[in-house]
Design a protein around this nucleic acid. Sequence first.
DNA 1: TTTTTCTTATACATACCTTATTCATTCTAC
DNA 2: GTAGAATGAATAAGGTATGTATAAGAAAAA
Lengths: 323, 323
Amino acid sequence: MTKIVELSDQPTFTIKDVSSQTGIRPVTLRAWERRHEVLNPHRAENHYRLYSERDIAILRWLKNRIDNGFSISNAISELRSLTSNNIWPEAIASAPTRQASLPNNTPPDHYAKELFRALVSHDEERAGDLLREVHALFDLYTVFLDVFVPTLREIGEAWYRGEIRVTTEHFASAYLRGKLLSLLQAYPVRRNAANILIGGAPMEQHELGSLMIAVLLRSEGFRVEYLGPDIPLEDLVDYASYESPAMIVLSASLEDSAEGLRGLQASLQKLGKNAPLFGYGGRAFDLHPELIKKVPGNYLGNTLKLAVTNIRNLLQARVKATA
Amino acid sequence: MTKIVELSDQPTFTIKDVSSQTGIRPVTLRAWERRHEVLNPHRAENHYRLYSERDIAILRWLKNRIDNGFSISNAISELRSLTSNNIWPEAIASAPTRQASLPNNTPPDHYAKELFRALVSHDEERAGDLLREVHALFDLYTVFLDVFVPTLREIGEAWYRGEIRVTTEHFASAYLRGKLLSLLQAYPVRRNAANILIGGAPMEQHELGSLMIAVLLRSEGFRVEYLGPDIPLEDLVDYASYESPAMIVLSASLEDSAEGLRGLQASLQKLGKNAPLFGYGGRAFDLHPELIKKVPGNYLGNTLKLAVTNIRNLLQARVKATA
DNA sequence: TTTTTCTTATACATACCTTATTCATTCTAC
DNA sequence: GTAGAATGAATAAGGTATGTATAAGAAAAA
């Protein structure tokens, strides 16, 4: 985790920007620079100072030390001893990262790592660049299986180990949710293909898994309605009786949510010949495999690829059965 | 990404037209052109300048930046870096200063009704067509205030009256969430503007309101981090102590979530001079106005427009106070 | 023809950034 | 306690940035 984070050296901020962001007066900034040789802002052609994000991160850290009662010279020598050992104070390490873009033959693994770093430092711009690159290089399955999923797993684990804040986890999740939803909406809706309803089990809040399934299915030409997380089952059955979808897919990451799915298959069977297939999956079933026996219906497997293959096969079988 | 609107390159406007549309004096326009090589208006045979709609959009964007306190050279270099990243025409086209309802005089509430019907019948395609049209006709405020908000209210009420299914409400909400998140991510992130953290109070699940605020603020050039719903406050305060945002905005639709905000202002004040402003709003405060007295901090009002205005004013006052 | 409004080029005032020097406090070491 | 360093801030003098004003010529309108 405490690997040295590279910060942008792109000089973009004027002294006024820096002052308003750090609360340090311009005169003081210049005095520090002159007297302590701290920072070395780039200069524009007109000799104006241009600060990088890294500079600002350092200044914020210094300001923080001063507000805690240390003198500027103390703070600076502390900073020096820290940086010479390659240990960066958290405020600096968590500043946005930006690296030269990697060569085009980088395996998806590296993108997962880079994406993780970008998200952990709340750097949307970098994350966007990475995703654009990833989409240009790989197909959707690779993007999801080898970039998104590992990134999400790493974020989850880092959160569990207490290395990143809940707020950061929230930020990353909101960001990827947005990307997946716009991806979903970018695919055209097939009106006369098999209709699949996708959502999260009751009480379920994590929707990234079901969203990825939805995007993959839609990209393969299925007609997909994405219903979001926390679907009430009774209402869903009622909706299914009117809409007659070919299949309902729900995901659960919590044990309780998964338990809640036990009665669904039976309720759906009551709809008779038009009863939709019911498929389920999610982290809850990876962690507690005994749940698979308890929940009637089609367990879709523990990877996205498996899930999509299973859904495809189940639907084909259903078409044959009704024909 | 989705193309929102096409801007004509036909040179049809005289410098006087441009001036009256943008509020920039002709002398100034010529000075910018001479000194910064920005824009390159076509010339008539008589050497008079002829501006295209696209030119005007760019100028309006520049004006907006200047009104937000940036210098012209800063604004132009920002513009350059944006265009080279090709996130460009969309961001400009939906700039907040666009004139409302130009050619077509269909009122926004007609679109609200149509959007409601499309969503209730789970018709994504129709909804997408409507949104594209709405974005081409109206500015963001109108789209949100007069189309999105009434649609959402109508969906909520229809659900309350039992006229639509929860599943339908979920579908509509997921759809609009996706649109809003893509919109948010379509705007470039300003790295040197006041940083605002936006999210939902603890236990809060409804995120459409805070998302709209986030989009509006980002469209006005603020640096916005959207953190999603259900933010843990303790962790947020910790994050704020490192990141020093200028403001934190949380929304609550449930009474309990709103109650949970009572202690935040005090926790934030402990961060000392760098303490961010705290603003809040949401349905909970419309329904239970007495909560406003109970929750210390800045109540932002009961409409989106009010909230954004209040946030802008609070931030301006803050800048003055620190300067 | 006269008047208006565009064109370019130059000029000017204000605000802000630059360096260098100075000043008034506060801290630190003897 | 006192001398001297450290520190934030003020000031002067020069340069840049920026909006605007003015002059002189050309085209369009009255």
